[in-house]
Computed example of a mutant assay.
Amino acid sequence: MIEVFERENVTCGKVQISIAGQKANPVFVFIVDGMLIDTGPERAEASLIPFYENYSFELVTLTHSHEDHSGTAPWIEKNRNVPIYVHPNGIEICAEPYPYPLYRQLTWGKREAFTAVPLGDTIQSRSREWEVIYTPGHADDHVSLFNKETGQLFSGDLFVHPETKVIMNTESIPVIMDSIRKLLTYDFDSMFCCHAGFIQNGKKVLKEKLENLENLTGEVKEFYQQGLSLEEINAKLFPKKYPIITISEGEWDSLHIVSSIIAEFQ
């Protein structure tokens, strides 16, 4: 099922995926000024198709190519005559059918290949121009969207939660921090996150996330200078072992948080 609601003239669609009785993070898709931002996972296609049929949009912009954001893009390509934009680094990924591990296919579905158009520095919706801000760290093709007139920010997966417990082995905490710092130079208040949804005090909570990551970096650096190993630092800072670590066979792990921070010191 999909839950649909309006916030600041943005149509928000929320879908919830469960696997083996466990709920994954909710996923949001947004329509603003005739632009669809992200397409949700393939496993939610049956819920999202009526949403696409009931609301009009002339283009699609992906914050990045991960399958929970691009999963129904192939359906849109086949059934709606609209361009689908992604950062140039994501073009080849979108052209591959489900280029990700089996556990992610089971969670989010098998996203088929589709043709994407490379984003430039700006993207034009019906009546507004949006700045495309390159914000890597979570993904190499990750972008955020900002409209100066409305002060709205679409942050993709850069926020998600104020406290980071696990990341993928391709992510980098220092790069994420740099991307957050870049966003904080913009004049916005509300934020639309593809997993947390609408956040009215977006700039405040994004600052909190950055402060948490800065504190975490300081702790890792201190333990590292004391001579502790990566594994010992991880055990001290993240004693809880989350199920995703086992399910993903280590693709997600708190260990990657520590290793990405330590890499900056070496």
Rank of each mutant, 00 (worst) to 15 (best):
Q124I: 12
F114G: 05
L102K: 03
K78G: 13
R104Q: 06
R126F: 09
T115Y: 14
Q124R: 05
E92S: 13
A113N: 08
K78A: 10
G120M: 03
R104M: 10
V117E: 11
N81W: 05
G90Q: 06
N89E: 13
V117H: 13
N89S: 13
C94D: 01
F114E: 14
K110H: 14
V86A: 02
P97Q: 02
P83W: 04
A116H: 03
R80E: 08
Y103V: 11
K78T: 09
I76N: 00
P97C: 00
I84G: 01
P83G: 05
W108V: 09
I84T: 02
P101Y: 11
K78F: 06
A113T: 05
N89G: 08
P101M: 15
T115H: 15
Q124H: 13
W75K: 11
K78M: 15
I76F: 00
R111F: 01
L102C: 11
I84Y: 02
E77Q: 08
P99E: 07
E112M: 15
T107W: 11
G120F: 02
A116S: 05
G120S: 03
Q124W: 07
P99Y: 02
R111S: 03
A113C: 07
P88S: 06
G109E: 04
Q105C: 14
P88E: 04
I93M: 11
R111W: 03
Y100G: 15
T107S: 06
R80Q: 10
G120I: 02
L102V: 07
Q105Y: 14
S125R: 05
I76E: 00
E112Y: 09
E112C: 13
T115S: 12
W75S: 12
V82T: 14
Y103F: 10
A113S: 07
I93D: 14
P101H: 14
G109I: 06
N81K: 09
D121M: 09
P88W: 02
L106Y: 04
D121H: 13
I123V: 04
I123N: 01
R126E: 06
T107L: 07
W75G: 12
W75Y: 14
Q124K: 09
Y103Q: 11
P118W: 08
I84W: 00
T107Q: 07
Q105S: 15
E96F: 15
I76P: 01
